[in-house]
Design a protein around this nucleic acid. Sequence first.
DNA 1: CCTACCGATCGGTAGG
DNA 2: CCTACCGATCGGTAGG
Lengths: 225, 225
Amino acid sequence: MVANSDEMRRAAPRRQRTAREHGGTALDAPTTDDGQAGERRQEILEVAAQLFAEHGYRSTSIRDIADRVGMLPGSLYYHIRSKEALFVEIHDKALDAAAIRVRDAIEPLADPWDRLLAACEEMVEIQLNPGSLTLPIMNIFRSVPPEVKVALLRKRDEFETIFRLIVEDLPLPAELDRSIYRILLLRLLNTADEWYHEGRLTRREIAGQIVAIFRHDAARGETQA
Amino acid sequence: MVANSDEMRRAAPRRQRTAREHGGTALDAPTTDDGQAGERRQEILEVAAQLFAEHGYRSTSIRDIADRVGMLPGSLYYHIRSKEALFVEIHDKALDAAAIRVRDAIEPLADPWDRLLAACEEMVEIQLNPGSLTLPIMNIFRSVPPEVKVALLRKRDEFETIFRLIVEDLPLPAELDRSIYRILLLRLLNTADEWYHEGRLTRREIAGQIVAIFRHDAARGETQA
DNA sequence: CCTACCGATCGGTAGG
DNA sequence: CCTACCGATCGGTAGG
């Protein structure tokens, strides 16, 4: 419905990409750095998060997001700085929210296996519930531009510390490598939305199965509770 | 370096997408259905497989592939029918090759845990070795067009039968759900390239760790070998 | 937040 | 396999 006429292209003044040359990169998030445009902005973040989660970074266009939020594509840029910044912001906020939820879930528990179970339950819940901003955008790496990737990875490492601590406390048999153990566990949890099929088992049961598989006690001759 | 001049757009004859209306869809693979253009075609498949594996479906352009293979973008279409067909063909061939390798690896073995270990070792090897066509394109779903996805899933199910049979023979404790067990295991194996970091452990050791985690014997009070 | 664009890039094609 | 394109779509922008 837009720009299709060649005749109107009258000596278009050459514009180079000088935007935001006044300090800050395209990854620096909000246009307005106060909370001003808050509510509408939140809606954009949630809509975008869902689309990114479903189709990946590259296959989700600014136009898709604008459509769903009921704006024209250009108008989005009143609220966001760039597609990249939008994605990074969603990603970081989702991880922050997830970190809080997981920490809260394990905090009252003392037994290491109980803590692992609680963390897994929480993560499965987070990944499978398309609620607000705790969304499965945790594993969209392949289609993301390289510069964005480094921003994502830094935040990722931060988040995974929680699990490093949990795994450290587990009384695992010596032959298990805790680093690999943590990586494998996180991979399953973080990609839950990709392998989970709404079916016979509840989310808690799924989490229970994961822990049942990952549960190995150092004391020889002991496996499950 | 191409089409930039408006003046040359002289009453461009309207062409609609009538291509290949003579039977067959865009997913039907080769242009020449004999082996004619074989060698060059093989090169295209391998180059494309690597790029798809690295950047995903959407972020890999026909131009990227053509560049690497030393052709102009349009020339690719002498060898392939469409980007979609190319991807599906690579995917299916990779799965066929993987199926053969895994079957061959477990065939001489009788013990169910030995068979699982051999299958895991083979899968890790396949996913981590960017050799020819046995490549980690097994988990590019998010950025792929919906029609392509169904073609992929059918082939996927076929492949996963191998693991269904292996898991069926495992003397697992009753509380473990074999379906979930298989899904989780396959997820780790299929995405090995995403979580593996070249490091202290060899591929075989990685496979060993996976099996160590997934190994649970029904006989109470027994865990590892 | 809309109007009205831009330049780049995409998958793909006709004709040689 | 190249030349020479096409129409669609992309992220993004100036100016209101």
